[in-house]
Structures are given as structure tokens and as C-alpha cells.
Amino acid sequence: MRTHDAGLAGMVTAVMLAAVVAGEPAAMGATTATEAQHRPECTVPSLPGHVVDVTLADPGSRMMSRSPGPSGSPGPYGTMSGSPGPQDTRMRLSVTPATVPAGTVSLRVANTGALAHEVLVLPLPSGQTIGQREPGSDQRIDEADSLGEVSHDCAAGKGEGISPGSKGWITLTLRPGRYELVCNFPDHYARGMYAELDVTGR
């Protein structure tokens, strides 16, 4: 019986080793860090119209904890952990230049933070200033009137979020007016990820 048990144990070990060789650790994310480290640099193509550089920043991974995704796994964005301080929890979204002529406007977005982010373009109602929108119970603001979104990793338009160190872009036709550019991942707007873009008449 002992010889039989030893043979069975050997077969189980062989099957487990075969699963490892077949790539089971990769499926569990064992090589994710290595893959991210060797990801090629994102190059933004030449964009039409007036180009606005949008920079996304956050305090860094030392202050963040991953938000769970729909299945309980880590999500693409983070929330602040611990007691929020006046300086260590603020996120940033900045635009350069802050004023452009109406017409074709391209946003060139660079994520310099430690978390994934996005950029939505929302019309700013008369008499309202940036940062005044009220987040809902999901810690997001209403984005129903969004005119465009940059959330594709190293590509144009919508995606799952712009990864740390990566870029995204979009080209829009904007009329004269005031616009609020925001990151609408949970709690990011409340942490300061908004900026104003003014579009003037031709």
C-alpha cells in the first residue's frame, strides 16, 4: 500500500508541475509586474486642432489601497486609506493651455500618478465653478452630459483607464464656453481631480 501511495503522490506532483509550466502562475498575475516593467513607451500621434496637455497626478501608491472590482478582485483605480490629511490625499488634474479657440480641440493626457485615471469633458453651467458637483453614493458625479472621454490606455477615446506612466488622447469639436475636465473614478473628483478649460470664440 505504501508503494502505491508513493506512486500516486508522484503522479499528483507531476500534474502540478505541468500546470505550473503550462502557465498557471501567469494566470494568477505572477508576471504582471514584469510585463508592466517592460511595457513599451506610449507615443502620442500628431493630433489635429488646438492641443491641450492634460496631466493627471496622485499622491502615490504609499497612500492608496486598491478598490475591489465587481468580482472582489483589485480594481483599476484606488481609494485613499487612513485618515485624509490636507496635503497627502489630494489628486491633481491640470490643463495647459487653459484657454483655446473654439473648433477642433485635442486633449493629450498623461498619467504621472501611481493609479489609473480618466478624463471626461463636461460643460460648465453658467454661474458654477469647478469642483462643485456633488458625488453620488458610488462616489462618482453625474456624467450624463459628457462630451467626450479619454480612458483608453495608449489609444484614443474610451477604455478601462489610463495606466500609470501611460497616455491617452481624444479630438473634439468644442463650441465657445466653459468646460470642466474631471476624473470620475470613485472618489477621485472629491479628491481634487478637476480643472477648467475655457473655449473662446474664433
Rank of each mutant, 00 (worst) to 15 (best):
P76V: 14
R62T: 14
D58S: 09
G78I: 15
G148P: 05
V121T: 01
A116I: 06
T96F: 03
D53M: 09
S67H: 05
T129H: 14
P97Q: 04
S83H: 02
P40G: 05
R140F: 14
V20M: 01
R2C: 08
L56T: 15
G69D: 02
R39M: 13
M193L: 12
G82Y: 06
L120Y: 07
S71D: 08
G161Y: 01
P123I: 06
L17W: 04
S151K: 05
D145I: 06
S94F: 04
A9R: 11
I141L: 06
H38W: 12
S83Y: 10
G75H: 07
G136S: 05
T99W: 12
D142S: 03
G157R: 09
Q128S: 08
A144E: 09
A156D: 11
P101Q: 08
L17K: 06
T129Q: 14
D138A: 03
A98S: 08
G29Q: 07
G69W: 06
E196G: 11
P101N: 09
Q139K: 15
E35H: 12
M11H: 09
G7M: 08
G113T: 02
T79G: 11
R191L: 15
A14C: 02
R39Q: 13
L172N: 01
E41D: 15
E196M: 11
G136Y: 04
T79L: 07
E180H: 12
T13R: 10
R108Y: 02
T89K: 03
W169V: 03
P84T: 00
S163G: 11
A27K: 01
R2K: 14
